[in-house]
Design a protein around this nucleic acid. Structure first.
Lengths: 252, 252
DNA sequence: CGGACATTTGACAAGCTTCAAGAGAAGTGG
DNA sequence: CCACTTCTCTTGAAGCTTGTCAAATGTCCG
């Protein structure tokens, strides 16, 4: 992997220059709040593909905003069975649950090289006190993430293999599209079939065969690390994925 | 069903008399915050067993705290397949996601007769502004609920039928125990096998056979609407359920 | 007693998992 | 630059867990 510090993949030194805020995906913030966020940020960091951002057992950890790259939250059972809870894409807040969690722990792992903005966990309370609006935003982000896990639970619990995969492809494609990361019906797609299997509660082999089947049906294609949606309408129908008007989300 | 307005099942007129706050399950609040909560509450209400608190399609709805009884959040697919996302027990905040949700909708249905404290959805922002501490608490509740859905996703995605049922029994028992609702190794258990099936992503028939098997193994017994845990240690082991020191949670 | 609903059982089918192994693709080092 | 290792993807076969169908039994309630 090539670490090039000056690439747009890395967080800019000034939050004001944040590439994410320049997209249409996020709600604008007041100058005052913007200044607070900038001062709240303690630094930036990166992690390599496959790296662990938060260990499943380790309760401590920082608070991050994912600036570039993919990561995922997961839980494992003692015999190694792994369940991916949801994927984290640019703009997602990472590590919030640690602050509150009943103890129910999960790990976070980078899929690609990632670049992150760091915030002090202890400062969260100050944020709520000084900028209730940002506190409100954080609740929003938490509720939004819960909504994604809700969807994944419906998928794992009640959809069959074909529907599950259709769902995941549509879901990821739409999220990336909102971030302006779709180009000509395709998006970067750095996850492998094991990730997909662990997300959907399927075995690797069955995931492979089902993906294959969808490709042969002309639904999609995955090559060179990109996902091409060749028949999004049909995929949506399969997944019962109801596309909603993109709604701007807060960004910390 | 008998509606007796003066029974302890119903919300007291004064929040100060709230039976829930007198248990050890919830974090104490400052007098000031207590007063705000009392004034924030717009009233109380009840719903009969089986009643719909929030319709799956209907985005609007109020904000509630469940005072007594059981309810559950769920999603359905167009052909009727239903996934229960999590159960709601006394003290749980209801309807928060509606405020923020990306549109990802879910319904909420009462299992038993329930009694609720109502809060105005529009007032939420005022709450954050005037009492950041309560805003912080709400984020906590949201994160805690997400943690439960995380667990349920791990269960539906990666545990087999026996483990799933063991997990659910332990989970519900422990939650009720924390609320002081366990008596001599048993708790009220108003849900039926269809609820269990829909929670765990299993069919009704297979749920029945697996429950039966656990009973024959001497793990538990369900009769007269109560759940008796006869061998909690073994159930914990089966489920890989790690009991954590009970932690007080906020109550709105 | 009759009707509605929840639980229970058996038989059979099917979807999915596991096991095994080969083919590609990509990185490593001599 | 090519052998070697390691991963990922792919495919076939066999078996088991779980789902579906059907029907009996039990329970609650008017």
């Amino acid at each position: 992997m090539s670490i090039s510090p000056s690439t747009s993949k890395n967080c800019p030194p000034l939050c004001a220059d944040c590439r994410l805020r320049q997209t249409s995906a996020f709600t604008p913030v007041k100058a005052q709040e913007m200044a607070f966020i900038a001062s709240f940020r303690t630094g930036t960091s990166t992690a390599p593909a496959g790296g662990t951002l938060i260990r499943e057992q380790n309760p401590r950890g920082k608070l991050f905003t994912l600036y570039s790259g993919w990561a995922f939250r997961y839980k494992t059972l003692s015999d190694g069975r792994r369940q991916i809870l949801n994927f984290l894409l640019p703009g997602d807040l990472i590590g919030l649950q640690q602050e509150f969690s009943d103890g129910a722990m999960h790990g976070i792992e980078a899929v690609t090289d990632v670049s992150l903005c760091e915030f002090p966990r202890e400062g969260l309370w100050e944020l709520y006190r000084q900028h209730p609006g940002l506190g409100y935003d954080i609740t929003w982000l938490a509720a939004r993430e819960e909504g994604m896990v809700d969807d994944n639970l419906l998928t794992a619990g009640r959809r069959n293999a074909i529907e599950r995969i259709a769902m995941l492809l549509m879901h990821l494609y739409r999220r990336l599209e909102r971030l302006g990361l779709a180009k000509g019906g395709s998006v970067e797609f750095p996850i492998n079939q094991q990730h997909i299997a662990d997300t959907l509660g399927l075995s690797l082999v069955h995931t492979n065969k089902t993906l294959r089947r969808l490709t042969q049906l002309g639904m999609h294609e995955i090559r060179n690390g990109r996902l091409f949606l060749l028949n999004p309408k049909a995929l949506q129908r399969l997944a019962e994925y109801y596309d909603l008007p993109p709604k701007k989300v807060p960004l910390l």
